[in-house]
């Protein structure tokens, strides 16, 4: 019996010496990156509004090096250019995101709803109506003003029975009534926004660099309805298809090569990890890193002009 116990104990402590590591840390987005000029449709007055819902999805990766040579901003090293007009692959060691695109029940919201930003139906509806200035419309072109109506549409569309089944709703309880806090960002004492990040199972290379960027939403003064608060990293042509009855649209989906070809998606107004903020992970091996993971704080504080 004792030997069996010892065997189990030893079995549980077996170190596979995998060449990978989970890299976790804190992400900081400056308040400026979450600030937009908002026009009051009634008074016509404009004002600066800082709101975590202006923080788009953030993509983080581990790369061999970061340079400013290829673009006008800090960017991961690229591999060989194989075809003209197609930049080289960055060959990341791994990566992850803070927030991803989810579908919030109406075609009007395809590619416009990152997870971890909205607490509930009212939070989303009021943001689009009062802040973005582009109220959510249903399939018939009518403005959606009722959280109850939106909930009914969502339940019918996804054939679900509870709010927690939708990832974009952050302030929600699970089936046991336990609170799920899915909001990614909280404002710190400096006024900046902080979130925790996890890059799972990164292929470890000593001295690799942690770099990433935030896909900022399009400006609110775009002028065209359903073109404000859009994101360059979402593929509007793909994703789950909805063609029930007279519906015929796709939900949109995150582009598949964001870390391999970030240069395709980063544009003016986005924010990147600047050269001074690039993190170097210097443990000798993945085993060393796992044994003694450092405190990592990544700042995405460099705006792309």
């Amino acid at each position: 019996m004792l030997s069996l116990f010892l065997l189990i104990s030893v079995g549980c402590s077996y170190d596979e010496q995998l060449p990978q590591a989970n890299i976790s840390g804190t992400l900081i987005i400056p308040a400026e990156a979450a600030t937009r000029t908002v026009l009051d449709p009634i008074t016509g007055e404009s004002s600066e509004v800082t709101d975590s819902r202006f923080i788009g999805p953030v993509y983080l990766g581990a790369f061999p090096s970061v340079t400013e040579l290829d673009y006008g901003y800090a960017h991961p090293e690229m591999g060989p250019v194989i075809q003209a007009d197609i930049e080289g692959n960055t060959y990341p060691y791994g990566g992850g995101s803070v927030g991803r695109f989810d579908f919030a029940c109406f075609e009007y919201l395809a590619c416009r709803t990152p997870t971890g930003r909205f607490t509930d139906y009212d939070d989303l509806l009021s943001f689009f109506a009062d802040v973005v200035g582009d109220p959510v419309q249903d399939a018939f072109g009518n403005e959606v003003v009722s959280a109850g109506y939106m909930q009914a549409v969502c339940y019918d569309l996804f054939e679900i029975t509870a709010d927690y089944e939708m990832e974009w709703i952050s302030d929600v309880s699970d089936y046991q009534g336990e609170k799920l806090d899915r909001l990614d960002f909280v404002q710190n004492s400096d006024g900046d926004f902080e979130a925790q990040f996890d890059l799972w199972r990164v292929n470890y290379a000593p001295d690799m660099k942690i770099w990433g960027w935030m896909d900022a939403p399009t400006d609110l003064d775009f002028g065209v309805a359903n073109q404000r608060y859009k994101f360059g990293t979402c593929n509007e042509q793909n994703g789950q298809q909805n063609n029930e009855y007279n519906n015929d649209f796709v939900y949109g989906v995150t582009q598949i090569d964001l870390l391999n070809f970030p240069g395709r998606y980063i544009g003016g107004g986005d924010w990147v990890v600047g050269m001074d903020d690039v993190i170097t992970v210097d443990a000798e091996t993945a085993e060393d890193y796992r044994a003694n993971p450092p405190e990592i704080t990544v700042r995405i504080a460099s705006k792309v002009e």
Binding site: P64, S65, E77, G79, P80, I82, Q83, N89, Y91, Y93, N203, A205, P206, D207, M208, N235, Q237, N238, I256
Partner: peptide, 25 residues
């Protein structure tokens, strides 16, 4: 074979014939 600046070996496919599937992949 391609070696990045940290000495990691990467297999690079230099096939230039890019065929896109029905889902854009």
């Amino acid at each position: 074979a391609y070696e990045d600046s940290l000495g990691a070996q990467v297999t690079v496919n230099t096939n230039e014939c890019v065929l896109v599937g029905s889902l854009g992949q």
